[in-house]
């Protein structure tokens, strides 16, 4: 009954809608939320949506991992390895940036007792 979900067109539509929804949820959080950690989480959600879109659209159903093992001898019917390698790299980079961001946020909160991004006005010209 749900076989139609396996057709590439529908599947890609789901991937696109889902990841774009995530992207805009992240963008909304970034613009509307005031707590530093929530802003950082929104950033992570935005990044995640781009990864999902990339991996989702670059593979189609039925493809296997591009690894020559388990009796497989040739690269037929295999997924393109580039998007996955790139996504892995991007996840690592995103993780590092997020860790730096959270550590700065924690230090800032310890120093000032403030975690509200709109109350950060030290640098404005008065």
């Amino acid at each position: 009954m749900l076989e139609f979900l396996d057709s590439p067109g529908v599947l890609q539509g789901i991937y696109i809608t889902g990841s774009l929804t995530l992207f805009f949820i992240g963008l909304y959080g970034l613009l509307a939320k005031r707590h530093l950690l929530k802003v950082l989480i929104s950033l992570a959600v935005m990044e995640m949506s781009v990864y999902l879109l990339f991996v989702g659209l670059a593979t189609s159903p039925g493809e296997t991992a591009p690894i020559l093992a388990d009796g497989l001898a040739t690269f037929t019917g295999m997924a393109d390895p580039v998007p996955q390698a790139l996504t892995l790299t991007a996840i690592v980079i995103g993780m590092a940036v997020l860790a730096l961001g959270v550590s700065l946020a924690v230090q800032y909160h310890r120093l000032t007792g403030n975690a509200d991004i709109r109350a950060m006005s030290e640098l404005k010209d008065s």
Binding site: F23, L43, F54, A58, M120
Partner: peptide
């Protein structure tokens, strides 16, 4: 206080820029 604030602001805005750039790269590859 000032330096941490600058670092945080820079990190947030810089990461947003990087996400947009990555999105463009992904679309180009696709």
């Amino acid at each position: 206080r000032g330096a941490l604030e600058a670092g945080l602001k820079y990190l947030i805005i810089g990461s947003v820029a990087a996400v947009f750039f990555l999105f463009a790269v992904v679309l180009i590859y696709l």
